[in-house]
Design a protein around this nucleic acid. Structure first.
Length: 435
RNA sequence: GCGCCCAUCGUCUAUCGGUUAGGACAUUAGGUUUUCAUCCUAGUAAGCGGGGUUCGACUCCCCGUGGGCGCGCCA
């Protein structure tokens, strides 16, 4: 029988990074197996908290990350009758009973009767797990208002969707004993289970929005590429061995097996993610990189209508040194005039002895060039000779005068992209303003 | 409190009884005709503690310690 797995989020808000990681692992497992199926189930039973917006957030997140699903999504709310039918079946065969729990007049709820024997199951990542009968209690499966509880709905839906492997977060391990008991009482084959280690923060607590980004949308806003995030998440709690990290989807799919999933919790490291993101951005075809940057720049007033050719030149220059799309925010000096000057940079590089002479010399020499990179290089060398300064010593003064900041691509490449007119205007402006 | 689970550099991890314990991020020092955020080179850095088992344990077992999860008419 071929593998059928599912991602079963409840649409109650933003899509958490831990949830999407579970989706990724399920997806990888399905794609790794021939004819494997990856299904989506929206557990929207909680009418109070479930919203259409939240459903859309889940769909968007999956699409962004390139996690496609097979078959139509199953909305749990449509399965109500089935859930209750299962409860009736359990009632009929003695696996459940009615009771007014607490007796406060809330009415009778339906309670599942645990088998009363020790239970065990094999977890694909944690090994054999067992629990004694005395440590397991009966539990409510249908509330007194007639609504099914998570455990019942979840198991019944998994039976309906013929799920063969349940791959989910570690926080569900304890529930599994109950779920196995439900399967057995319902006369359904018990699926295989695999529990994924939690993603935690520096304190070892579940990773939350307070630890930086926790929601998938936030990562997108911060400028991460979906492929990089996908690859990085894959490495949290799993490893292909052989020191491999940056891998294509096809490679990850081929290498993915549950027996290589770790059991210990993993801590999210935004710095490593950023580094990996830089690797991904650097190898993107220029037009794709431009699209990514553009999506970002539309949020900035100077980033909306850009000259395509010029924009392409800037992107080409900056691509290899861009760890995050959001970094493009600092490229403003390429596009706006007048440019803002960094106070400290001005203080250190322009308001110093000799800066005036330096800029005057450079202005004269640069005016005489055609602003090709080679010519710019040559002009710089001439300026150094004329001023008796060492190679590269003038670079920063020139850079701050023309860009307003101390960091960026090579000075000659930058000047070339900026163009002669703009560069010289700024140079002269800096000269009269700061020196 | 009770039950279950987990434990290798600061972080993510490799190792499936015998290795100088490897890689990556971060960090440090250089280099890239001394911007840096790319790139290159090198360095610092780890088996929680105590008992066993074994010729030999990071690896297997037990006990501690620390951490996580669970114990809802939440999901």
């Amino acid at each position: 029988m071929s593998v059928r797995v599912r991602f079963a989020p409840s649409p109650t808000g933003n899509v958490h990074i831990g949830n999407i990681r579970a989706a990724i692992f399920n997806w990888l497992f399905a794609r790794h197996h021939e004819n494997g199926r990856f299904l989506l189930r929206i557990e929207d039973t909680d009418r109070e908290r479930s919203t259409p917006e939240a459903v859309k957030a889940i769909l968007d997140a999956m699409e962004w990350l390139g996690i496609n699903y097979d078959e139509a999504p199953l909305y749990q709310s449509t399965q109500h009758a089935r859930h209750l039918e299962a409860a009736q079946q359990l009632l009929a065969n003695g696996h459940a009973y009615k009771e007014d729990k607490g007796g406060t007049g809330q009415g009778e709820c339906i309670i599942f009767r645990m088998p009363g024997t020790d239970m065990a199951f094999h977890d694909e990542v944690k090994g054999d797990l067992r629990k004694e009968a005395k440590d397991m209690k009966d539990f409510v499966i249908v509330r007194s208002d007639g609504s099914p509880v998570f455990h019942l709905a979840n198991v019944v839906d998994d039976i309906t969707q013929s799920i063969t492997h349940i791959i989910r977060g570690d926080d569900h391990v304890e529930n599994t004993f109950r779920h196995v008991a439900l399967y057995q009482a319902l006369g359904a084959p018990v699926p295989r289970y695999a529990h994924l280690p939690m993603i935690v923060n520096a304190q070892g607590k579940p990773y939350s929005k307070r630890d930086g980004a926790a929601y998938i949308g936030q990562f997108r806003e911060m400028g991460f590429s979906p492929d990089a995030l996908f690859n990085y998440l894959t490495l949290l709690g799993w490893s292909p061995g052989e020191d491999r990290e940056k891998m294509t989807r096809a490679e990850i799919i081929a290498a993915f097996t549950l027996d290589r999933v770790k059991s210990a919790p993993a801590q999210m490291d935004l710095r490593k993610l950023s580094h990996m993101n830089g690797l991904y951005l650097a190898e993107l075809p220029l037009d794709q990189f431009m699209n990514g940057v553009r999506e970002f720049l539309t949020g900035l007033d100077w980033g909306r209508s850009l000259d395509e050719t010029y924009f392409a030149a800037v992107c080409k220059l900056m691509q290899s040194r861009t760890p995050l799309y959001s970094q493009a925010e600092t490229w403003n000096f390429f596009f706006i005039d007048p440019i803002p000057y960094d106070e400290k940079a001005v203080q250190k590089n322009l308001k110093k002895e000799g800066a005036r002479t330096t800029l005057e010399t450079l202005a004269t020499l640069l005016t005489a060039t055609d602003f090709s990179e080679a010519a710019l290089q040559q002009a710089l060398r001439q300026a150094e000779t004329a001023l008796g300064s060492g190679e590269g010593k003038l670079n920063q003064t020139l850079r701050v005068a023309v860009t307003g900041v101390t960091v960026g691509a090579g000075i000659c490449e930058t000047l070339h992209v900026l163009g002669k007119e703009r560069s010289l205007t700024r140079l002269n402006h800096a000269l009269t303003t700061f020196c």
